[in-house]
Design a binder for these strands. Sequence first.
DNA 1: CTGAAAGCGCTTACAG
DNA 2: CTGAAAGCGCTTACAG
Lengths: 347, 347
Amino acid sequence: MAKAAGVSPTTVSQAFNGRRTVSRQTLERVHDVAERIGYRPNAVARGLRESRMNVIALVLRPLDTLESFLPEGVDFFMRFAGSAALSAMEHGYSLMLVSDPTKPGAPVSSLAADVCIVTDPFENDPVLTLLKNQHIPALTVGVDPARPGVVPSIDSNTRAETFEVLDHLESAGGTTVGLALGTDRNAWNLTAKRAYVEWCGARGREPIIYENPETRGEAAGERIAAEAFDRVDRVERRPDAIYCLTGRHASGLVAAARSRGIRVPEDLLVAAGSDALQNRTGRPTVTAMDLRPEETARRAVELAVQLFEGSDAELPTSAPGGILRVRESTSRDPVRSASRRRGPSSD
Amino acid sequence: MAKAAGVSPTTVSQAFNGRRTVSRQTLERVHDVAERIGYRPNAVARGLRESRMNVIALVLRPLDTLESFLPEGVDFFMRFAGSAALSAMEHGYSLMLVSDPTKPGAPVSSLAADVCIVTDPFENDPVLTLLKNQHIPALTVGVDPARPGVVPSIDSNTRAETFEVLDHLESAGGTTVGLALGTDRNAWNLTAKRAYVEWCGARGREPIIYENPETRGEAAGERIAAEAFDRVDRVERRPDAIYCLTGRHASGLVAAARSRGIRVPEDLLVAAGSDALQNRTGRPTVTAMDLRPEETARRAVELAVQLFEGSDAELPTSAPGGILRVRESTSRDPVRSASRRRGPSSD
DNA sequence: CTGAAAGCGCTTACAG
DNA sequence: CTGAAAGCGCTTACAG
């Protein structure tokens, strides 16, 4: 390129980066030639020299457990990733989807990013340790439960949201409220469980907890139903409301309950701690906490950019508050129940 | 690192890449030291030297029109991207989501990838031209309709799939079958339209076509319904079946029809050319062509890797055949209709 | 205003 | 088996 325009590499670089003064003439010539021969500065060479690639890495930790990017009925992560990609671009970055970079075969490119967003880290998450060792700035969405302050984070509002859902189930008519959740040791599971136990304690009730590995997916709904309704020895502890932390547990549970002749919401109230499309459109529609993944992702990307570029604006460091979407699965009043037979909810 | 282990950079490099012979002793020492100080070869430097970053870029062209990564009710792209990310990792690559790299503000990192997958390119797509100029190998999912052979591609089976849906609508009882589609000039829209016109011609029928810009989203359903059912001057051309190419058009149309008292499927049959979650779970469920984005993405990634690495295995160069998921919106027989009032379809 | 030199951290011939 | 040298394509002091 330099020789094509008859100038030095220095001048080409300056023409493209506009640092020093380059004469109008030279500037034009360089740009004309660049246009003509389709020259663009090599991003990798620039990256090496400048120690910046303009790439944000995203590690969706729960998916490393699931060993799938496509868990049926989980749209949280795809909504999060999509929004993060868009936000990154608006800040002049690309978004790179990265799987567990501590795994032996992980592509080296996993560590070529300027900054890394890790969602829902596990206790003492090795990914955070690795990033720290490599001096790659990192932030988490939801804290590492074993070391909450180890890196900056967008904090979730799990405690408050858990209370809100449980209170809602109670006011919708639930008297014996169970909790179904996963076994990953991340802040979401651990905080929700603690909040639930606390909530039960305040009411003098014994907690009823159903735990299923995340890998079990919708099938967990069947397990929950079996444990809750099939065991004769537990007939007194039969819940009339179950808070499923994940949308897929909720969907699975609704199906499993129905197959037992248990009606939702008449006999059993069901709510989910994360909203998914099938909760909005299924039958019945399922009340769910909309965690607003798009806005959360936007905040995470902004914090990532700030972390890397070192600006000092005041940014939110907590996720937006969840919004409880009340739907048929917790609505026993006749009006709503009747509407179930007619059209889609206006939700 | 080299000095920490008391060897030359050459030896470190060889120890990590295992090319030449390095004595067992030296090898062990290098790895021990690397472990201790957390050394990993710099991916960017290696990338510059080797002209390979192990990164696959993905440009989802339709999203550049929509100006959103998150069109409500389009899960095709997220399923595609998720599967592509996973496949890329299995081949030792990371997946980078890139928006239109021809746009002025595009991050330079957009062009740092080894190879680029472009889905649904437009006619004479400038992205393909740019990639060609930059000598970045590219492939498309669905051809550039103006220059089908310009780069390798995973070809869609749009023509056959269009016939299959139209035949299905006919056998389900449709006598006047309309087509609703978008205005993006990509192979999907253009091929479907051509196939539809041909199908009508073979039956001596006049085509009935509803075109709406992709940006209009679900609202397009209302426009389609207005055009089809509100205009008195067209009462003879009123369709009793409409094939909506996109899942969101179908959803919007079902809602718009219902709000006019037109029952689906009794008065109007509706099918979609791309399956989305709300088609599976809405009321009524909507018959749709499952384009199998996960498998398509997998093939695209494999072709991308081959293109970049130059292996010569025989790979499929067409998308997997779509599978028609027949649901309530095209099922008039009493059994199925009755089941609508009870439980979720077993689909 | 412009260019020659140095160097970002690697890898690969090449020489020993 | 090991290391010194060159070079991937840039950018940034520095000198003119």
